[in-house]
Design a protein around this nucleic acid. Sequence first.
DNA 1: CAAAAGATGGCAACCGGTTGACATACCGCC
DNA 2: GGCGGTATGTCAACCGGTTGCCATCTTTTG
Lengths: 355, 355
Amino acid sequence: MHDYDGAVTQVTNPGAATVPARRGRGEKSSPTIYDIAKLAGVNPSTVSRALSKPGRVSAKTQKIIEDAAEQLNYRVNPFARALPTGRTQTIGLIVADITNPTFFDIIRGAETTGSARDYTMVLAESAESPETELTAARRMLSTVDGLILASPRMDDEQIRALASEKPVAVINREVDGVPCVVPDVNKGISQAVRSLAANGHQKLAYVAGPPQSWMSRRRWEGVQAACDWYKLEAVRLESSKPTVDGGRQVARDVLASGATAVITYNDLLAIGLMQELQAAGMRVPDQISIVGFDDIFGADFTTPALTTVRSPLGECGSRAAALLLDMLLGHEGPGGVVRVDTELVVRGSSGRLLA
Amino acid sequence: MHDYDGAVTQVTNPGAATVPARRGRGEKSSPTIYDIAKLAGVNPSTVSRALSKPGRVSAKTQKIIEDAAEQLNYRVNPFARALPTGRTQTIGLIVADITNPTFFDIIRGAETTGSARDYTMVLAESAESPETELTAARRMLSTVDGLILASPRMDDEQIRALASEKPVAVINREVDGVPCVVPDVNKGISQAVRSLAANGHQKLAYVAGPPQSWMSRRRWEGVQAACDWYKLEAVRLESSKPTVDGGRQVARDVLASGATAVITYNDLLAIGLMQELQAAGMRVPDQISIVGFDDIFGADFTTPALTTVRSPLGECGSRAAALLLDMLLGHEGPGGVVRVDTELVVRGSSGRLLA
DNA sequence: CAAAAGATGGCAACCGGTTGACATACCGCC
DNA sequence: GGCGGTATGTCAACCGGTTGCCATCTTTTG
């Protein structure tokens, strides 16, 4: 990790510099290892080794070359390096929907740990479509060292196919044979259902997410299991789309279901649902409790603030990136599943049922 | 930043993942123009021309080559192309803060128009620091065809220096000689101040953003001008940081100022401020009106929903990308300023003053 | 002190496209 | 038929690193 420009106070006019301006267009092109080699009086290949294969050259030569590199303000040309090696110092991240705040934290987590290790992140969006996703993934695959798929919509086979070409890490879904980072929903769901049961609720509705969503199914299973245990009746409702708007639309189904507590696939649905129910005169949480999922940005903006099962999304992004980078460095991960804990964040939207 | 405390359970290891086959020597590597050349019975350079210089080869040969390429499922190696040409089909985007939802629409706008024209986007964050920003910009510069700076914190000179090396577009700030996309705040501010004046307010506070923020200054100027016109008294307050938390912290200053209406540098500040004021027993908007800026995701989650001056951020991102791509195609943009309209979105947080 | 082992640097062949220079092939035209 | 001109394809030299192989030089060891 070279940091050549400390506090740069670029002032003087360009051209005063002693840098020999060669190169066709008269532009000052950046120095190459050949320039360094000339300056240091060694062979270019030695420069290459000094700069990328620690220990391969003697300490003395190493020093000379590093000084020369410093002096010329050298930085490797990523393309020239990528060409023979395939290494690009770049990881790709594909998310289902850039505007969905669920992914904000994931993106940031991945970007942060990526750039901490000097990897650049490239971002693409699948717009919730398996086909777009696959296309984006394929297009990326040739230009990145590894790929992170957040909540992928492709099927397992396609993911494994990708993973057989380049290292892949998956977030929010389990795929056999591919390293995954998955929030373990059971803990958070248990807490949520227990809390609801303790507050007098007896019938609970789960508002599901997109049918292709592995995580939505998983959450439903968790809800069922917990309801079983705590002796609540659970019903499942479908949403048209996992957004605020979808939440509003599902409000009448919720009312019709007779449930007094609702757990939604994500916070957006919960927020939309709450808005619509309140607009219809329902009091939250006195008449109905609402629990979301993920604890996204804005979940505490609502009145009452949203009770939600928090998934540490930033950590998911971050760990997925770390997993990937470890694989790239050869620390072959076992391809297992990393589970991160979820927990209930109790705010105002859930509570005692005042029947 | 993120710390992974022990709340992590590493579990299952489903079927030992088979290590991806290293791209060995005889392995199925992707086809090259040489493969196409052999198949089509022509010289590699002819293939190169057929694929990138339309019209340079005869229609007949063109067809043969395209068919061969199709048959082999050929795709260019971006690095091999980038090496001699410098063209990378990639644009960089640097934002001040990835977690700030303001930027999400920008990111999305840029990504969408970028990928529509077959450009990949790479993303970096400056963490609101001019130095980090410059470093990131420099690092990116060598690997992208052009750069978009969203709300840059560097000074004008540095930006112009970057712009002299590669095409640069700026969002949310005007820099002489560099193409910029800037929401024209005056319209929205006028509407806001007029509306506040009409509702009986006489003293207005502006909560400023980061000192380096060009846009914050601009908004303050706009507020001053509008207050002048509508005969309101305007005071300026400083915030510690442009976040929800910063908004909470500035609440006491707001109260102390005696203003009955507040316009904040951005929505996050407005939301935090409103939360804190409400917690202190103030009624919004009966006792104090609050107007934010940007209309970010979640601005309508609050109770009352936030009145805000909407900047079309997605459009900003999109237009900046378009500007950049046009420059890359040689349509030399005049380096002027593109202004997009802002408008007041009236929701519940502003209204008549019930003194 | 000689031989074997190890460390170090140089040479040159790539990686996969791009492109200027040049040789033909092809065309129309006098 | 010969000539100039253009269309088309080929050759070869890059772009800037990486790396296998080999020649030396140094060190260790018997």
